[in-house]
Design a protein around this nucleic acid. Structure first.
Lengths: 406, 406
DNA sequence: CGATATTAGTTCGACAGTCGAACAAAATTG
DNA sequence: CAATTTTGTTCGACTGTCGAACTAATATCG
């Protein structure tokens, strides 16, 4: 039940009904391919005549295509329909602290090529570097005409309207334009988004079928702890595109020093650095204090997991403690937003088997309702490149989303 | 950008365009009345002919009516249009710990009659009592045929589908049917919702024009602390209608004992009982321990505010401390959801002038972004009966909401 | 093998809207 | 009183859904 904003609405024209039904048909093909016209008509409780006409539109437009005829027990065989994704390409870019990843993928999120290089901290230098690399990548795969855009994921705050990066502490960026500069360089439209929101988009649009609902939170744990929120099938961006900053919800205002200046933030208990610091018995070291940070003397969270698996009890303890605190925070999120499930991404999911019981115990401590206590927590499968898939979704999703109306 | 749920969608029929435009016209009349057909046509960038036809529909249906002709500098005078709200009535019911309030109001939320009586704790007895009182109220105002429904607000968890109250600790209710029993009794449709969500609905649908956005959080502070969340013009209910339970987000896991069993919940710092306990130097006493609770020996939060105004420094301190903790929690909400504003309801807003600086200071401590730090906090004006207005909105809003499509 | 039944997909006229232009109505201005 | 301006209505063209009739293709049965 949405309220109509009388200062910003879209009225229906004589083609609105068709636009709506066209999108529904497209999504039905996407979710049930291979599928026949007659089957779509049944699923929509609509005449087959209308489906014929809509499908013709979509074929002319090039978004779907006819495949081989299927098989039927009796009667005429159906002609199967598919969404055209294989030759509609996207360049996905994930800018991270140490390295930048560039992936060429199709609309379904299938990886075609992947490369990475050291991140240049100067934004201008990075854009120049990226531009030439993307050009080379597209040419190498003869993908110039088939690429529909670039999706760009950054570890920081993005201003939605202008595409500027307002603050990216890990990169030392402050109010920097990357989107428009890159768009100009590669001659393709560029969509930009922060990492947790991109991960949520990836889960919503490219998640495994059946595993995705339209009411979930995607928690990302790495250098920072953030979340992408999806409610009613919509990514929640907030008023200034900064929704989902759960990382600095306090667990204990007398707790460990957080890099944000406050004490006892969720992030100060659960970020990769926090876990490493707990293991090393050190305080967290501010990242953007000036010098380039060298987290935990070269020890990474993956190293820590390896040590734990090799039998280092103190490593295990540090990791399991993080799991417990993750659960406590997730319990709070469950209370606040009552999602149907919570996805968990980040390097720590490599130790999911170790932390799962602690995570669930943490949720039990905090979740108020019986339904909330049962909320499933699903770890990201390793090697899934959620941020890169999110970058792909940034470009592909608008072609499949419900038309805006009223 | 919403994803279409292919298991649950609404396709467009040949009347969908009309339904959409009809709702837009209705809302334009609502927001700009008195308004002429020609003016609506301009605001919608549509031909006047279409408006004529849609307006005729709405007049026939009885949702709007023609008033006197307006004035124009030149040319034919416009006939002004108004939404029919005066003789479309709603019975709003607010069930609270000690008393139950019943209000007869029109669709615009205007109060016609208001009465209250002591809450019977037995659900069945309360329903019987309510039924006869509502019948009497309707008869006394000759409102039988003009009443379109009953809105019921309860202090507890409501199961959306069945209308059952799953848990209302203050009333001692657990899995109780009130909606259907009351509907049967009064012969009218009954809508039920929990208090914070109803307050948010009231703000969204019946808030002062210009003061309301479609991206806000309504925080209610009374015996418990909860919130109603509105994002993208939609009330966020969550998967099992329990979204908005921010009351048990921890501020400090070693903090004061909360009634929920955990320690240091936001509620344990900011509820009316918490404020009173801080003043009295006592621990919180569990409400649903068995015996009927007698909060703080008869001292109420209103009393405390009076004492503070009369110069009781310890009362002031207790209240200002609550304000500070409220700000800290609101800062967390601002980080999590990035609303454009936060509304604050509850008895404590009677001391808004005293707590405002502390609230803002609390937000400053926690809010991460410059935009977030500026998020306005708006106190409920006293005597506004937000819960009762929310009950009205429960019945009235569906007539004005955007049609569900795709 | 041919008639029948069944399912897929197309075509077409009826109906429900929007779109835009022409028209009638009602006011002001010169 | 004529010209002008604005409001509101009417009507034919266009775009869509709706439903029934039609064609196409296949399996089954006597």
């Amino acid at each position: 039940m949405r309220k109509i904003d009388t200062r910003d609405f879209r009225r229906a024209t004589r083609t609105t009904s068709r636009e709506i039904n066209r999108r529904i048909v497209l999504n039905l093909v996407r979710d049930h391919q291979p599928v026949s016209r007659a089957d779509i008509a049944r699923r929509m409780s609509i005449g087959r005549g209308v489906v014929t006409s809509i499908i013709q539109d979509l074929i002319d437009e090039g978004t779907i295509y006819e495949g081989a005829t299927g098989h039927a027990a009796r009667g005429r065989r159906p002609t199967m329909l598919y969404v055209r994704t294989q030759d509609r390409l996207v360049v996905a870019v994930d800018i991270r602290f140490s390295r930048t990843f560039v992936m060429l993928s199709d609309f379904a999120g299938t990886q075609i090529a992947l490369e990475s290089f050291e991140t240049a901290f100067d934004p201008h230098a990075l854009v120049v570097d990226l531009t030439s690399r993307i050009r080379r990548l597209l040419d190498a795969h003869g993908a110039r005409g088939r690429c529909e855009g670039v999706g760009l994921v950054v570890p920081g705050m993005v201003e939605r309207l202008t595409g500027r990066v307002l603050l990216a502490p890990q990169l030392g960026w402050r109010d920097v334009d990357v989107r428009d500069a890159l768009a100009k360089g590669v001659g393709l439209p560029v969509q930009i988004e922060n990492a947790p929101m991109a991960c949520a988009l990836a889960q919503m649009w490219l998640g495994q079928r059946g595993n995705t609902t339209d009411n979930f939170v995607y928690v990302t744990v790495s250098d920072g702890v953030g979340a992408g929120i999806v409610l009613n099938g919509q990514l929640i961006r907030g008023e200034t595109n900064s929704a989902g900053e759960f990382g600095h919800i306090p667990l204990d205002t007398n707790g460990p020093q957080c890099l944000c200046g406050a004490r006892g933030c969720w992030e100060a208990y659960t970020s990769n650095q926090a876990t490493l610091s707990r293991y090393l018995g050190r305080e967290l070291v501010p990242l953007w204090g000036g010098a380039v940070p060298h987290p935990a003397g070269g020890l990474t969270i993956e190293d820590l997991i390896s040590r734990a698996r090799a039998g280092d009890a103190r490593a295990s303890e540090a990791i399991v403690a993080t799991g417990h605190y993750l659960g406590v925070g997730i319990g709070g999120i469950v209370n606040a937003l009552n999602p149907s499930q919570v996805f968990l991404g980040g390097e720590i999911t490599g130790a999911w088997d170790m932390i799962q019981p602690a995570v669930r115990a943490g949720i039990l401590e905090r979740a108020l309702t019986p339904a909330g206590r049962k909320t499933p927590v699903v770890p990201e499968q390793m090697g899934g490149f959620p941020r890169l898939r999110g970058a792909t979704a940034l470009v592909a999703a608008p072609h499949f989303a419900a038309p805006r109306v009223a």
